[in-house]
Design a protein around this nucleic acid. Structure first.
Length: 473
DNA sequence: TTTTGAGTTGTTCGA
DNA sequence: GTCGAACAACTCAAA
């Protein structure tokens, strides 16, 4: 062959636009072989999720189609990445491998092993600003979000000129053998996330051109599509996080008085924050960030955990959210906080149990964001919620699902419960309905819907005692 | 080195 | 119904 060859190793950057690794691989007119390695350590690991794997495989199919439309195609191999890449280097005669940097603990181990023996170059990052680039004056990492975000914003911000479209044509990778993508597991029709770069860009465009302005006011409403629903796409890099930042800044410039775009940008900065935290403090994947919070006397009742997983706690907002998770692979952000608070602070179950369940269910499951969120709720992490902040599932339901549309959607047993009337709307506390009202609504507690697994007021007192500083010192 | 101000997302209670 | 205080103390970041 006449020109040099490079492997483009895709991991969580399944896109052709704004892809630094692809651009670096293409530089100099090289022949580029796009490769994805199906890694059993990830796909069959203890924190894998059939829904997420289905989304990934769909994304790979979409990417392959996008590549073929440009004269290229995706080469899929199965096995340990090191072995697969070493073989491909030999088969193709490639001199270099280009990949976007991934900062999660597994990726760091994997990439370290690969880069010790193979010519791999890491270009770009799954974060907007990679770990190590947002540090305190002394060169150490931030552990509090607000100063982190100030330092993050103080650096030059990306603009429209930093983005580039997918190349119109790509070099033919030549005759390289690859596996066909496995069919199973398929995405359930209930999963409202068609995979692929085009869909990711469409969602970002639609969200940033309107709904983002209402984001600040609607983001907490679980009964409303007030969020971007971009998380699975960002998880697999079907859209560049940098492109999301640019879109948020542009929306902010258009609505200088509005708070929605800035609020959403803040969430993108949180995404970077937790990527940095996990990269700088990889032990948080195994234990609480705060040493003082490592000795909380968890109850860890396996039956209560099973009820939480199944959405059978008797608290409608909790159960609806857990059904939304298992049926659709996704859960509204506010609902994630509510169910997490319930698991940790009402049931006193170790946050790591909930963290693992989320990873096994979430189409957007990401080790950094998931760990950060759980440790925040549990009060064990960086900049965490104070231990006495315990969500009341009834109050949260009334506040963020005022008409009960969300709980009715996911809990058919509650479909007949009135939202208004005598004595008040009780859809978020159906056990307070009279026997006659329960019968009229077709929701008899104990028959159609479970009674509350714990009394929230008592559970709250129990947790305050368990967390009290004199206990956890 | 010391000091000071500040810290995602709540709830409950009593006036 | 609304409002402010209490919940508890600690750690971080920066001057």
């Amino acid at each position: 062959m006449t020109s040099e060859t490079a492997l483009w190793w895709l991991r969580r950057d399944l896109r052709l636009a704004d892809n630094d690794a692809l651009r670096a691989a293409l530089a100099g007119g090289r022949r580029v072989v796009p490769v994805f390695v199906l890694d059993p350590a990830l796909l069959d690991g203890p924190t894998s999720s059939p829904t997420r794997t289905g989304f990934l495989l769909g994304g790979l199919r979409a990417l392959d189609a996008d590549l073929r439309a440009r004269g290229s195609r995706l080469v899929v191999r199965r096995g340990r990445p090191f072995d697969a890449l070493a073989r491909l280097l030999a088969e193709t005669g490639a001199a270099d491998i280009y990949a976007e940097d991934d900062h999660s603990p597994y990726a760091v181990r994997r990439d370290g092993a690969v880069s010790r023996q193979l010519p791999v170059h890491f270009v770009g990052s799954s974060a907007v600003r990679p770990p190590g680039t947002v540090l305190k004056a002394g060169g150490t990492p931030y552990t509090v979000f607000t100063p982190f975000s100030r330092a993050w914003l103080a650096q030059p911000l990306p603009g429209a000129t930093d983005l580039w479209a997918a190349p119109a044509t790509l070099p033919d990778p030549g005759d390289v053998a690859g596996e066909t993508l496995p069919d199973a597991p398929r995405l359930s029709p209930a999963v409202p996330f068609p995979p692929g770069e085009a869909e990711a860009q469409r969602r970002l465009r639609v969200f940033a051109s309107g709904p983002i302005d209402a984001y600040d006011g609607l983001r907490d409403r679980v009964d409303t599509d007030g969020t971007s629903r971009l998380s699975p796409y960002l998880r697999f890099g079907m859209v560049a996080p940098r492109a999301a930042v640019v879109a948020a800044l542009a929306a902010q410039a258009e609505q200088p008085g509005g708070r929605g775009a800035g609020r959403w940008l803040n969430e993108l900065i949180w995404r970077d924050f937790y990527i940095h935290i996990l990269a700088h403090f990889p032990n948080v994947a195994r234990e609480s960030f705060r040493p003082a919070a490592r000795d909380i006397p968890w109850r860890n009742d396996p039956y209560e955990f099973a009820a939480w997983c199944a959405g059978e706690t008797g608290y409608p907002i909790v159960d609806a959210a857990m059904r939304q998770l298992s049926e659709s692979g996704w859960m509204h952000n506010r609902a994630r906080m509510i169910v997490a608070s319930f698991l940790v602070k009402d049931l006193l179950i170790d946050w790591r149990w909930g963290e693992r369940w989320f990873m096994q269910q979430l189409v957007d499951g990401d080790p950094a964001a998931n760990n950060g969120g759980w440790q925040w709720t549990a009060g064990t992490g960086t900049d965490a919620a104070p231990y006495f902040r315990i969500f009341n599932p009834v109050t949260q339901g009334r506040k963020f699902d005022p008409d009960g549309r969300y709980v009715r959607r996911w809990l058919p047993a509650l479909a007949g419960v009135p939202t208004a009337g005598v004595p008040t709307a009780l859809v978020h506390e159906p056990w307070r309905l009279s026997t006659a009202e329960q019968r009229a609504a077709g929701c008899v507690i104990g028959r159609d819907y479970p009674p509350p697994i714990v009394d929230h007021a008592l559970a709250r007192e129990r947790t305050l005692a368990a967390y009290a500083p004199n206990v956890i010192v």
